[in-house]
């Protein structure tokens, strides 16, 4: 197909969200606020990592069509520099405290589920199948993260403040989720990609409903980082990604060509 390079780029956008957020959640393993929660959060990380790998597998097939043989999942995950990563700025933000982690998760999960819902209707059968499978997992992620927003927002004075601070700080990264650049516009027109802009209103209503129950205030929509076509999806990241990748890629890059 003529638009394979664009489609490849779009697959990286989907894959990198999973890989990068799973990497962040991996930092929590063994350090969660309760044993049960530690185990549950790791399941979310494992799901996202699995989804990332499914998107990368398809990315490779697409890349192989115009630049054979195409890079494998590990070459894509461990040998790309920060500027080649296509994840949203939101998912690369540091874990912070548990409210920061849960707010990041909730804002993403709510969008992620809607996006996958739209992608399940993609004209590209592979995309539709992966999205349908991932949506089942993400529905549960959203249940959990929405639940935690409510528990923290409606918990103690301290947890309420931390939840509100987390939402306020992360809000600036939410606009990027609904931005549509030339690459996505073309794929949307072809019926392959989801129209992210159309998700904004339903996302806002869903988030508002949870915040209402959590007695959290909806932040005002000011300037949004990365929403103007110069953000994570275009490879322009926050400083956090570079540090994350330095850690993630160190072993793989120290032994070029090695198999593990």
């Amino acid at each position: 197909m003529d638009d394979d390079p664009q489609l490849f780029d779009y697959m990286l956008r989907l894959a990198d969200n999973g890989i990068v957020l799973a990497q962040r959640l991996g930092e929590w393993v063994g350090k969660g606020p309760a044993l049960e929660e530690d185990i549950a959060l790791t399941n979310v990380g494992l799901d996202l990592l699995g989804q990332g790998r499914m998107w990368l597998a398809y990315a490779r097939e697409i890349e192989a069509r115009y630049a054979p043989p195409g890079r494998g999942e590990d070459a894509l995950a461990f040998l790309r520099d920060g500027g080649e990563f296509r994840n949203l700025l939101l998912v690369e933000q540091p874990n912070g405290n548990y409210a920061d982690t849960m707010a990041r998760q909730f804002l993403f999960d709510q969008w992620h589920l809607m996006l996958l819902g739209a992608l399940a209707g993609s004209k590209d059968a592979r995309i539709a199948a992966i999205a349908a499978k991932a949506a089942k997992e993400v529905r549960y992620h959203l249940e959990r993260s929405a639940d935690w927003m409510i528990r923290l927002g409606d918990g103690t004075e301290l947890s309420h403040r931390r939840a509100q601070d987390a939402v306020d700080a992360l809000w600036v990264y939410t606009g990027e989720m609904f931005s549509v650049d030339a690459i996505e516009r073309g794929l949307v027109a072809a019926g392959v990609a989801a129209d992210a802009a159309s998700l904004r209103d339903p996302w806002r209503s869903a988030v508002a409903a949870v915040f209402d129950e959590a007695s959290l205030a909806m932040p005002g929509d000011g300037w949004m980082q990365g929403a103007s076509g110069r953000g994570g999806k275009q490879g322009i990241h926050t400083e956090h990604l570079g540090h994350m990748l330095a850690e993630m890629q160190i072993v793989a890059r120290s032994h070029p060509g090695a198999r593990w």
Partner: peptide, 25 residues
């Protein structure tokens, strides 16, 4: 976990360490 050299190894290690948490529980 954060430095595992392949995605498969990373997933396996996460699942394994998670199991240890379950066993403690």
């Amino acid at each position: 976990i954060t430095r595992a050299p392949s995605l498969q190894r990373k997933a396996t290690l996460m699942a394994k360490v998670q199991d240890e948490g379950g066993h403690g529980l």
